[in-house]
């Protein structure tokens, strides 16, 4: 091999350069969605997210159809189930694990509390690169007021 003294350091520098994001993120960045401007405000469900203020589990589980942890991970599964039951299986109500009965409806149940589309839904979905088409048809309350 010719020019070993130049080639090897060159390769090392290249590898270091290509992996800069890893080195930088090791110390500086946290994998969190941007923090919620409404933390602490009433009726604003900030709690589904791991924001810097931390989730408010108590306030959340009081109202929602399932606990925060489940909803954070599997809300899309639950919504899909609701859609199929309501439209195709002629069911109206959902019985939550703790025995409460809810009307299966995005707009009449979920969005009554989770009424801030941009801060509640979009913040996380943008961060995770998820493209929704729910709100092409379904109306969130804030949007309606515009």
């Amino acid at each position: 091999m010719y020019n070993v003294d130049k080639v090897i350091p060159g390769i090392l520098i290249l590898v270091l350069f290509l992996t800069t994001p890893i080195w930088l993120n090791l110390t500086n960045l946290k994998a969190l969605p941007p923090s919620d401007p409404h933390v602490g405000q009433a009726r604003m469900c900030t709690t589904c997210h791991v924001s810097e203020a931390g989730p408010d589990e108590a306030a959340m589980s009081e109202r929602c159809v399932a606990d925060t942890k489940y909803m954070r991970g599997y809300h899309m599964k639950l919504l899909d189930e609701w859609r199929d039951k309501k439209i195709r299986k002629m069911e109206v109500n959902y019985k939550s694990p703790d025995g409460k009965i809810y009307v299966m409806s995005l707009q009449r149940t979920c969005l009554k509390c989770h009424n801030d589309y941009h801060n509640f839904c979009d913040r996380c979905h943008q961060f995770t690169g998820v493209n929704l088409d729910c709100f092409n048809c379904h109306i969130s309350v804030k949007e309606e007021k515009k």
């Binding site: 309501k86 002629m90 069911e91 109206v92 707009q107 048809c137 109306i139 309350v141 309606e144």
Partner: peptide, 26 residues
């Protein structure tokens, strides 16, 4: 006017009367 209790539709779907199935079920 907008009824917040019911969805709208999006561009490019076909729609029709649904016999108010949501009301009949209730």
């Amino acid at each position: 006017s907008v009824n917040p209790e019911f969805p709208t539709r999006s561009l490019g779907v076909v729609e029709k009367c649904i016999f108010c199935y949501h009301r009949l079920d209730e």
